[in-house]
């Protein structure tokens, strides 16, 4: 259990990195590493976090950290894990635990890195994989990924006269990961830090592969103000667009349940990337979000929402990790 008061003062992501102000990913990384501590090794994919944190000869990383390429964080992490295992086995290093952590963006995870991730999960390496999902290729200037939400405009899915932003639905990484039958997977958000910290800790303590999917609002990419990052992260959860839940041994557990959801429009309205979205699309998205939410509740063994399904205020926690 984490509480604000017991949280370490130590920073593992040194200040002075080059992230944009209000970067949700940087906030999440800072939190994540407070939970992970010092005895880890990190394999980081190419992307925003790599670029903002490691301009030679400077580095923001207070732990051993390696960047190799865009699509192979899971494979590099597999190698670190295998290497440490062999060295420990042969008595070349001591027996103290070192957790191996891989980190990548949504592009590095759901698109170009999917094969390496699948391979590593299937092989069952003892590592924690964290996807920082800012819903596009931000490092290269906001191009769509398969994790970009429907309707969002990006530089490669612009809102034009004929095509209106992203035309496909967001890829469900949690289901893909579940199909690998790994011991633990969870979604998290820097807007719910205590929940996030608990999940990181759990994922790091479990033996075998664990997966965390963290929604990380990005001011320039989403067309929002720096100060809106945390609030929008909450709206993503409270509208059901990004539910917080855990998958453990085939069971789904909602981290945060609502009797009523906030209308999706509230979440979309505040973001430049959804500007000009028409009512038809809005309705379609609302319907699909609801369906997914109901489906998740069914899978979690909870009662589905009743017809009057929207609410105005108030959040009720049912579980903290």
């Amino acid at each position: 259990m984490f509480a604000v008061k017991t949280l370490t003062d130590r920073e593992y992501l040194a200040p002075g990195h080059r992230g944009c102000s209000g970067c949700g990913q940087a906030v999440a990384v800072r939190m994540v590493h407070k939970a992970l501590g010092q005895r880890i090794v990190v394999a980081c994919a190419t992307g925003c976090m790599e670029v903002i944190s490691s301009p030679f000869p400077q580095s923001s990383w207070e732990m051993p950290w390696i960047h190799v390429a865009f699509e192979n964080a899971a494979a590099v992490a597999s190698g670190i894990e295998a290497g440490l295992k062999a060295l420990r086995h042969k008595g070349k290093i001591d027996n103290r635990k070192i957790k191996v952590v891989a980190m990548a963006g949504d592009g590095g995870t759901a698109d170009i890195g999917l094969q390496a991730l699948s391979g590593a999960l299937e092989r069952g390496h003892d590592f924690l994989y964290i996807c920082y999902d800012n819903e596009a290729y931000m490092n290269t200037g906001v191009q769509r990924s398969s994790s970009t939400p429907y309707g969002a405009s990006t530089m490669t899915t612009p809102a034009g006269r004929i095509q209106k932003g992203q035309a496909t639905w967001k890829k469900n990484m949690m289901e893909i990961v579940a199909a690998h039958h790994i011991p633990y997977a969870a979604t998290a958000s820097p807007s719910y830090p205590m929940d996030l910290l608990g999940k990181v800790k759990k994922g790091a303590e479990i033996k075998g592969p664990a997966y965390l999917h963290i929604l990380s609002p990005c001011p320039p990419g989403w067309g929002i103000e720096a100060e809106d990052t945390i609030g929008l992260g909450r709206l993503a959860v409270e509208t059901g667009a990004f539910p917080l839940y855990e998958q453990e041994e085939g069971k789904i557990r909602l981290s945060l349940d609502f009797d009523k959801l906030i209308p999706l429009e509230k979440y979309l309205k505040g973001q430049g990337r959804f500007r000009g979205i028409d009512q038809e699309r809005m309705d379609y998205m609302q319907e699909r979000v609801l369906e997914m939410w109901q489906d998740l509740k069914r899978k979690a063994g909870l009662r589905e929402l009743r017809p009057s399904r929207f609410r105005k205020e108030g959040v009720k926690w049912i579980r903290t990790s």
Binding site: V41, A43, I66, V68, A69, E71, N72, A74, A75, V76, A77, S78, G79, I80, E81, A82, G83, L84, A86, L87, K92, I93, Q115, A116, S118, G119, A120, E122, R123
Partner: peptide, 19 residues
């Protein structure tokens, strides 16, 4: 591994770990 791309990535990781 599931590909040569991952084979070399993995070798980089393990060699960097000191193996």
């Amino acid at each position: 591994v599931e590909s040569e791309h991952s084979a070399m990535s993995l070798c980089i990781g393990s060699q960097a770990a000191g193996a």
